[in-house]
Amino acid sequence: MRKRASLAGSGTVIEGDAGAWRPPPQKPARQSKKKPVKPGDTFGVPGYGSSLVTSLVTVLVLVGGWFLITSMHWVKPLFLPSPQAVYAKFISVASEGFASSTLAEHTVASLLRVFGAFALACVTAIPIGVMMGVSRFARGVFDPPIEFYRPLPPLAYLPLIIIWFGIGEFSKVFLIYLAIFAPLAIAARAGVRSVSIEQIHAAYSMGATRRQVVTHVILKSALPEIFTGMRIGIGVGWTTLVAAEMVASTRGLGFMVLNAAEFLASDVVIMGIIVIGFFALCFDVLMRYLEKKLVPWKGRV
């Protein structure tokens, strides 16, 4: 049998086999290691991906606009001091103090109030929210008072708290605690109600008790909403801090801002706002990190 190789490189023609054509031999493809596909890479999940670069650009644009407006004297320094003036005041308050206290003393006083109230709210609001989600009796007991006072601004019931508990430190912490309690309890209840009924039935079918279902299925499934409620609650707590430090306070970031506003010291006001926002942002970043570590299944199931 005679063979004739095609010079065109398109294959090999074998005479005697009715002109059968065979493809040219292919080299074995190199095996390349591919990384696992991330969620959203295949179909493009809306909102997926990092926004760090966009956030940094936004901050740079805002700070640059602040520099531009103040350097061009488009706004009087009384209403918007320059970043240099705010930084100079920051150094001055940190070293010499303002209203008989240094910046560190003001900061420590506010942090103790906010995080003390936040810790107390976590200890009480999360269990109550879980009970509201798993028990109709608990929901009937706690839901009416929480839903009643939740829309009220803290300044509305601040006078009543002062009448009941005086003007001491407890009234300030209690006011912040009430502001954090409601959103945290509602978030915990919503997290419990969002648990899939199939997961609960699967746990019962495997012999789990009611307590085990609550602790190992319901509570863990509600963690994403609980973390969201914690982030919202601490934000509400920082906003309530200013109202809490309005009455008979001698130190604190909110007290410093209010005291500076009475003397039209806008540089101190802006500096205090930046410090409050900095600590609030740090706590939010910490909560995001803890949520990522403790709830790795969020958005994947």
Rank of each mutant, 00 (worst) to 15 (best):
L111H: 02
R113V: 00
G272M: 04
F263W: 09
S101A: 14
S95V: 00
F263R: 15
S266W: 02
V217I: 07
V242S: 03
A85C: 07
I167T: 14
F255Y: 13
F43S: 12
T239R: 11
P39H: 10
V301F: 13
Y87W: 11
I274T: 07
Q26L: 10
F148W: 05
P153Q: 05
P24N: 10
S82E: 03
F118M: 11
E262D: 11
T250S: 08
G97Q: 03
P46L: 04
G65L: 07
A119I: 15
A265D: 15
W74L: 10
M230H: 06
A203P: 07
M131I: 09
F255W: 08
I91Y: 11
G11E: 04
A190Y: 12
A185M: 04
E169L: 01
R30T: 15
M287D: 10
I14L: 15
A280P: 06
K298M: 10
M230D: 05
K89V: 08
A109T: 06
R2W: 05
F279R: 02
S71I: 10
A20V: 13
A244L: 03
A203M: 05
A185C: 07
T240Q: 00
L152G: 05
G65Y: 02
E225K: 11
K3V: 15
W21Y: 14
H106N: 06
C122R: 04
V93Y: 06
L60C: 12
T124K: 10
V275G: 01
P224Y: 00
